[in-house]
Write a protein that binds this DNA or RNA. Sequence first.
DNA 1: ATTTTCCTTTACGTAAACGTCAACCTTGAT
DNA 2: ATCAAGGTTGACGTTTACGTAAAGGAAAAT
Lengths: 141, 141
Amino acid sequence: MNNTTKIRTYSISDLAKEFDVTTRTIRFYEQQGLLNPARQGQTRIYSPKDRVRLMLTLRGKRLGFSLAESKELFDMYDSTTEGDEKQLLYMLNILEKKQADMRQQLRDIQRLQEELNNAEERCMDALNKVRSGKRQKQKAG
Amino acid sequence: MNNTTKIRTYSISDLAKEFDVTTRTIRFYEQQGLLNPARQGQTRIYSPKDRVRLMLTLRGKRLGFSLAESKELFDMYDSTTEGDEKQLLYMLNILEKKQADMRQQLRDIQRLQEELNNAEERCMDALNKVRSGKRQKQKAG
DNA sequence: ATTTTCCTTTACGTAAACGTCAACCTTGAT
DNA sequence: ATCAAGGTTGACGTTTACGTAAAGGAAAAT
Protein backbone atom coordinates (compact mmCIF):
# COMPACT_ATOMS: atom_id res chain seq x y z
CA MET A 1 0.00 0.00 0.00
CA ASN A 2 1.16 3.49 -0.57
CA ASN A 3 0.47 6.30 1.79
CA THR A 4 0.19 9.04 -0.82
CA THR A 5 -3.28 8.31 -2.13
CA LYS A 6 -4.15 11.03 -4.58
CA ILE A 7 -6.99 13.18 -3.48
CA ARG A 8 -9.42 14.80 -5.88
CA THR A 9 -9.21 18.53 -6.16
CA TYR A 10 -11.54 21.16 -7.59
CA SER A 11 -11.11 24.53 -9.18
CA ILE A 12 -13.20 27.44 -8.01
CA SER A 13 -15.41 27.23 -11.07
CA ASP A 14 -15.86 23.48 -10.65
CA LEU A 15 -17.46 24.15 -7.31
CA ALA A 16 -19.32 27.18 -8.58
CA LYS A 17 -20.94 25.07 -11.28
CA GLU A 18 -21.67 22.11 -9.04
CA PHE A 19 -23.44 24.17 -6.42
CA ASP A 20 -24.79 26.88 -8.70
CA VAL A 21 -23.15 29.82 -6.97
CA THR A 22 -20.78 32.44 -8.36
CA THR A 23 -17.05 32.40 -7.81
CA ARG A 24 -17.51 35.69 -6.03
CA THR A 25 -19.61 33.90 -3.46
CA ILE A 26 -16.97 31.25 -2.90
CA ARG A 27 -14.22 33.81 -2.44
CA PHE A 28 -16.43 35.73 -0.08
CA TYR A 29 -16.96 32.64 2.04
CA GLU A 30 -13.22 32.21 2.24
CA GLN A 31 -12.82 35.82 3.31
CA GLN A 32 -15.34 35.13 6.08
CA GLY A 33 -13.27 32.18 7.27
CA LEU A 34 -15.59 29.41 6.09
CA LEU A 35 -13.22 27.90 3.52
CA ASN A 36 -9.48 27.43 3.47
CA PRO A 37 -8.39 26.24 0.03
CA ALA A 38 -4.76 25.41 -0.74
CA ARG A 39 -2.89 27.49 -3.29
CA GLN A 40 -0.96 26.66 -6.40
CA GLY A 41 0.76 29.94 -6.97
CA GLN A 42 -2.13 32.33 -6.78
CA THR A 43 -4.76 29.88 -7.84
CA ARG A 44 -7.06 28.31 -5.28
CA ILE A 45 -7.20 24.52 -5.10
CA TYR A 46 -10.16 23.02 -3.27
CA SER A 47 -10.07 19.66 -1.49
CA PRO A 48 -13.03 17.37 -0.83
CA LYS A 49 -13.07 18.79 2.68
CA ASP A 50 -13.48 22.30 1.28
CA ARG A 51 -16.23 20.98 -0.91
CA VAL A 52 -18.10 19.53 2.05
CA ARG A 53 -17.75 22.80 3.91
CA LEU A 54 -19.24 24.68 1.01
CA MET A 55 -22.07 22.19 0.86
CA LEU A 56 -22.77 22.56 4.55
CA THR A 57 -22.58 26.33 4.35
CA LEU A 58 -25.17 26.39 1.59
CA ARG A 59 -27.43 24.02 3.44
CA GLY A 60 -27.07 26.19 6.49
CA LYS A 61 -28.15 29.16 4.41
CA ARG A 62 -31.25 27.35 3.23
CA LEU A 63 -32.07 26.77 6.86
CA GLY A 64 -31.62 30.40 7.81
CA PHE A 65 -28.13 30.20 9.32
CA SER A 66 -25.96 33.25 8.90
CA LEU A 67 -22.45 32.70 7.60
CA ALA A 68 -21.14 33.65 11.04
CA GLU A 69 -23.26 30.97 12.68
CA SER A 70 -22.06 28.32 10.26
CA LYS A 71 -18.50 29.38 10.86
CA GLU A 72 -18.98 29.12 14.60
CA LEU A 73 -20.30 25.58 14.26
CA PHE A 74 -17.41 24.59 11.99
CA ASP A 75 -14.83 26.07 14.32
CA MET A 76 -16.35 24.40 17.33
CA TYR A 77 -16.60 21.07 15.61
CA ASP A 78 -12.95 21.28 14.54
CA SER A 79 -11.78 22.04 18.05
CA THR A 80 -13.90 19.39 19.75
CA THR A 81 -10.94 17.15 20.40
CA GLU A 82 -8.82 19.82 22.05
CA GLY A 83 -11.47 21.94 23.70
CA ASP A 84 -11.36 22.49 27.44
CA GLU A 85 -14.35 21.83 29.67
CA LYS A 86 -15.74 25.34 29.45
CA GLN A 87 -15.53 25.32 25.66
CA LEU A 88 -17.24 21.95 25.47
CA LEU A 89 -20.07 22.99 27.74
CA TYR A 90 -20.51 26.12 25.67
CA MET A 91 -20.67 24.04 22.53
CA LEU A 92 -23.23 21.66 24.03
CA ASN A 93 -25.28 24.71 24.88
CA ILE A 94 -25.15 25.99 21.32
CA LEU A 95 -25.96 22.58 19.93
CA GLU A 96 -29.01 22.34 22.16
CA LYS A 97 -30.20 25.72 20.92
CA LYS A 98 -29.77 24.72 17.31
CA GLN A 99 -31.70 21.55 17.93
CA ALA A 100 -34.52 23.60 19.41
CA ASP A 101 -34.44 25.87 16.36
CA MET A 102 -34.70 22.86 14.11
CA ARG A 103 -37.61 21.41 16.04
CA GLN A 104 -39.42 24.74 15.70
CA GLN A 105 -38.63 24.86 12.03
CA LEU A 106 -39.92 21.34 11.57
CA ARG A 107 -43.25 22.40 13.06
CA ASP A 108 -43.29 25.52 10.88
CA ILE A 109 -42.72 23.48 7.76
CA GLN A 110 -45.38 20.94 8.58
CA ARG A 111 -47.95 23.66 9.14
CA LEU A 112 -46.99 25.48 6.01
CA GLN A 113 -47.21 22.27 4.01
CA GLU A 114 -50.76 21.77 5.21
CA GLU A 115 -51.67 25.31 4.33
CA LEU A 116 -50.09 25.07 0.92
CA ASN A 117 -52.16 21.96 0.32
CA ASN A 118 -55.31 23.79 1.37
CA ALA A 119 -54.49 26.72 -0.88
CA GLU A 120 -53.84 24.37 -3.75
CA GLU A 121 -57.17 22.65 -3.28
CA ARG A 122 -58.99 25.93 -3.07
CA CYS A 123 -57.19 27.10 -6.15
CA MET A 124 -58.13 24.00 -8.13
CA ASP A 125 -61.76 24.43 -7.13
CA ALA A 126 -61.73 28.01 -8.35
CA LEU A 127 -60.11 26.88 -11.57
CA ASN A 128 -62.79 24.24 -12.17
CA LYS A 129 -65.48 26.83 -11.61
CA VAL A 130 -63.92 29.17 -14.12
CA ARG A 131 -63.65 26.34 -16.65
CA SER A 132 -67.18 25.06 -16.25
CA GLY A 133 -68.31 28.66 -16.67
CA LYS A 134 -66.47 28.77 -19.96
CA ARG A 135 -68.17 25.61 -21.16
CA GLN A 136 -71.58 27.08 -20.39
CA LYS A 137 -70.73 30.16 -22.40
CA GLN A 138 -69.57 28.03 -25.34
CA LYS A 139 -72.82 26.08 -25.29
CA ALA A 140 -74.84 29.24 -25.12
CA GLY A 141 -72.75 31.10 -27.70
CA MET B 1 -78.74 36.69 17.68
CA ASN B 2 -77.12 39.97 16.98
CA ASN B 3 -75.11 40.64 13.93
CA THR B 4 -72.66 43.04 15.52
CA THR B 5 -70.47 40.57 17.35
CA LYS B 6 -67.63 42.55 18.83
CA ILE B 7 -64.27 41.64 17.41
CA ARG B 8 -61.10 41.81 19.43
CA THR B 9 -58.63 44.45 18.45
CA TYR B 10 -54.97 44.98 19.24
CA SER B 11 -52.68 47.96 19.56
CA ILE B 12 -49.35 47.98 17.82
CA SER B 13 -47.51 47.32 21.05
CA ASP B 14 -49.87 44.49 21.95
CA LEU B 15 -48.73 42.68 18.85
CA ALA B 16 -45.14 43.75 19.31
CA LYS B 17 -45.10 42.16 22.75
CA GLU B 18 -46.95 39.04 21.73
CA PHE B 19 -44.62 38.26 18.85
CA ASP B 20 -41.49 39.80 20.28
CA VAL B 21 -40.82 42.25 17.49
CA THR B 22 -40.48 46.03 17.57
CA THR B 23 -43.22 48.42 16.55
CA ARG B 24 -40.85 49.59 13.87
CA THR B 25 -40.97 46.13 12.36
CA ILE B 26 -44.75 46.09 12.33
CA ARG B 27 -44.98 49.48 10.68
CA PHE B 28 -42.41 48.40 8.16
CA TYR B 29 -44.47 45.35 7.26
CA GLU B 30 -47.44 47.61 6.68
CA GLN B 31 -45.35 49.83 4.44
CA GLN B 32 -44.43 46.75 2.43
CA GLY B 33 -48.10 45.91 1.99
CA LEU B 34 -48.24 42.91 4.34
CA LEU B 35 -50.60 44.44 6.88
CA ASN B 36 -53.58 46.75 6.56
CA PRO B 37 -54.70 47.88 10.01
CA ALA B 38 -57.72 50.13 10.50
CA ARG B 39 -57.24 53.60 11.92
CA GLN B 40 -58.74 55.44 14.83
CA GLY B 41 -57.57 58.91 14.07
CA GLN B 42 -53.91 58.37 13.46
CA THR B 43 -53.61 55.33 15.64
CA ARG B 44 -53.47 51.89 14.10
CA ILE B 45 -56.01 49.32 15.19
CA TYR B 46 -55.23 45.70 14.42
CA SER B 47 -57.85 43.01 13.83
CA PRO B 48 -57.45 39.27 14.39
CA LYS B 49 -56.93 38.97 10.65
CA ASP B 50 -54.00 41.40 10.86
CA ARG B 51 -52.67 39.39 13.73
CA VAL B 52 -52.76 36.18 11.71
CA ARG B 53 -51.00 37.90 8.86
CA LEU B 54 -48.25 39.03 11.15
CA MET B 55 -47.94 35.53 12.52
CA LEU B 56 -47.70 34.07 9.03
CA THR B 57 -45.19 36.68 7.96
CA LEU B 58 -42.94 35.83 10.88
CA ARG B 59 -43.25 32.13 10.27
CA GLY B 60 -42.41 32.77 6.65
CA LYS B 61 -39.30 34.59 7.77
CA ARG B 62 -38.21 31.68 9.90
CA LEU B 63 -38.53 29.53 6.80
CA GLY B 64 -36.45 31.87 4.67
CA PHE B 65 -39.26 33.67 2.83
CA SER B 66 -38.60 37.27 1.93
CA LEU B 67 -41.28 39.79 2.82
CA ALA B 68 -42.02 40.17 -0.88
CA GLU B 69 -42.62 36.43 -1.23
CA SER B 70 -44.98 36.36 1.71
CA LYS B 71 -46.85 39.31 0.30
CA GLU B 72 -47.19 37.58 -3.03
CA LEU B 73 -48.68 34.52 -1.37
CA PHE B 74 -51.10 36.64 0.66
CA ASP B 75 -52.22 38.62 -2.36
CA MET B 76 -52.74 35.49 -4.40
CA TYR B 77 -54.64 33.78 -1.66
CA ASP B 78 -56.90 36.80 -1.26
CA SER B 79 -57.71 36.94 -4.95
CA THR B 80 -58.31 33.21 -5.35
CA THR B 81 -62.05 33.64 -5.64
CA GLU B 82 -61.92 36.26 -8.36
CA GLY B 83 -58.81 35.21 -10.22
CA ASP B 84 -59.03 34.38 -13.90
CA GLU B 85 -57.71 31.12 -15.31
CA LYS B 86 -54.25 32.46 -16.10
CA GLN B 87 -53.86 33.86 -12.59
CA LEU B 88 -54.99 30.61 -11.03
CA LEU B 89 -52.60 28.53 -13.09
CA TYR B 90 -49.81 30.92 -12.15
CA MET B 91 -50.70 30.52 -8.51
CA LEU B 92 -50.76 26.74 -8.73
CA ASN B 93 -47.33 26.97 -10.27
CA ILE B 94 -46.01 29.07 -7.38
CA LEU B 95 -47.63 26.78 -4.83
CA GLU B 96 -45.96 23.77 -6.41
CA LYS B 97 -42.59 25.51 -6.20
CA LYS B 98 -43.07 26.38 -2.56
CA GLN B 99 -44.01 22.81 -1.80
CA ALA B 100 -40.81 21.64 -3.47
CA ASP B 101 -38.86 24.15 -1.38
CA MET B 102 -40.47 22.81 1.75
CA ARG B 103 -39.69 19.22 0.83
CA GLN B 104 -36.05 20.18 0.29
CA GLN B 105 -36.00 22.04 3.57
CA LEU B 106 -37.48 19.05 5.35
CA ARG B 107 -34.63 16.90 4.07
CA ASP B 108 -32.11 19.57 5.08
CA ILE B 109 -33.47 19.70 8.57
CA GLN B 110 -33.49 15.96 9.04
CA ARG B 111 -29.87 15.71 7.98
CA LEU B 112 -28.84 18.58 10.16
CA GLN B 113 -30.63 17.05 13.12
CA GLU B 114 -28.66 13.85 12.68
CA GLU B 115 -25.44 15.78 12.44
CA LEU B 116 -26.24 17.84 15.49
CA ASN B 117 -26.86 14.62 17.38
CA ASN B 118 -23.52 13.25 16.24
CA ALA B 119 -21.75 16.44 17.24
CA GLU B 120 -23.45 16.36 20.62
CA GLU B 121 -22.36 12.79 21.22
CA ARG B 122 -18.83 13.54 20.19
CA CYS B 123 -18.84 16.57 22.40
CA MET B 124 -20.07 14.60 25.41
CA ASP B 125 -17.35 12.02 24.86
CA ALA B 126 -14.71 14.72 24.81
CA LEU B 127 -16.19 16.20 27.95
CA ASN B 128 -16.06 12.88 29.76
CA LYS B 129 -12.45 12.43 28.77
CA VAL B 130 -11.57 15.86 30.12
CA ARG B 131 -13.39 15.12 33.37
CA SER B 132 -11.86 11.69 33.92
CA GLY B 133 -8.50 13.32 33.26
CA LYS B 134 -9.25 15.79 36.01
CA ARG B 135 -10.12 13.00 38.45
CA GLN B 136 -6.80 11.30 37.72
CA LYS B 137 -4.97 14.49 38.47
CA GLN B 138 -6.87 14.94 41.72
CA LYS B 139 -5.98 11.40 42.79
CA ALA B 140 -2.36 11.96 41.87
CA GLY B 141 -2.20 15.44 43.38
C1' DA C 1 -51.19 71.87 34.69
C1' DT C 2 -47.64 69.11 33.41
C1' DT C 3 -45.35 65.02 33.07
C1' DT C 4 -45.42 60.31 31.39
C1' DT C 5 -46.88 57.09 28.20
C1' DC C 6 -48.20 55.71 23.64
C1' DC C 7 -48.64 56.72 19.35
C1' DT C 8 -47.41 59.06 14.78
C1' DT C 9 -44.41 60.41 10.41
C1' DT C 10 -40.02 61.40 8.19
C1' DA C 11 -35.57 60.38 7.38
C1' DC C 12 -31.04 58.86 7.62
C1' DG C 13 -28.01 54.77 9.18
C1' DT C 14 -26.54 49.90 9.09
C1' DA C 15 -25.23 44.84 8.70
C1' DA C 16 -25.23 40.80 5.75
C1' DA C 17 -24.37 38.80 1.50
C1' DC C 18 -23.18 39.21 -2.28
C1' DG C 19 -22.98 41.86 -7.54
C1' DT C 20 -20.23 44.33 -10.54
C1' DC C 21 -16.63 46.60 -12.46
C1' DA C 22 -11.47 47.43 -13.11
C1' DA C 23 -6.96 46.12 -13.81
C1' DC C 24 -4.04 42.61 -13.86
C1' DC C 25 -1.56 37.50 -14.34
C1' DT C 26 -0.94 32.99 -16.82
C1' DT C 27 -1.49 29.42 -19.72
C1' DG C 28 -2.90 26.46 -23.30
C1' DA C 29 -4.61 26.84 -28.17
C1' DT C 30 -4.22 28.72 -32.84
C1' DA D 1 3.03 35.82 -31.04
C1' DT D 2 -1.33 36.67 -29.52
C1' DC D 3 -5.56 35.81 -27.87
C1' DA D 4 -9.28 33.75 -25.45
C1' DA D 5 -10.38 31.40 -21.06
C1' DG D 6 -9.97 31.23 -16.50
C1' DG D 7 -7.78 32.95 -12.36
C1' DT D 8 -6.43 36.92 -8.97
C1' DT D 9 -7.08 41.21 -5.81
C1' DG D 10 -9.22 45.47 -4.69
C1' DA D 11 -13.01 48.51 -4.25
C1' DC D 12 -17.35 50.44 -4.66
C1' DG D 13 -22.58 49.43 -5.41
C1' DT D 14 -27.00 47.16 -4.10
C1' DT D 15 -30.87 44.90 -1.77
C1' DT D 16 -33.35 43.44 2.37
C1' DA D 17 -34.95 44.25 6.78
C1' DC D 18 -34.97 46.67 9.89
C1' DG D 19 -32.46 50.32 13.89
C1' DT D 20 -32.32 54.80 15.54
C1' DA D 21 -33.06 59.52 16.21
C1' DA D 22 -35.88 63.81 15.58
C1' DA D 23 -40.03 66.17 16.18
C1' DG D 24 -44.41 66.14 17.36
C1' DG D 25 -49.87 64.87 18.68
C1' DA D 26 -53.14 62.95 22.19
C1' DA D 27 -54.52 60.90 26.32
C1' DA D 28 -54.00 59.26 30.99
C1' DA D 29 -51.90 59.69 35.48
C1' DT D 30 -50.13 62.67 39.16
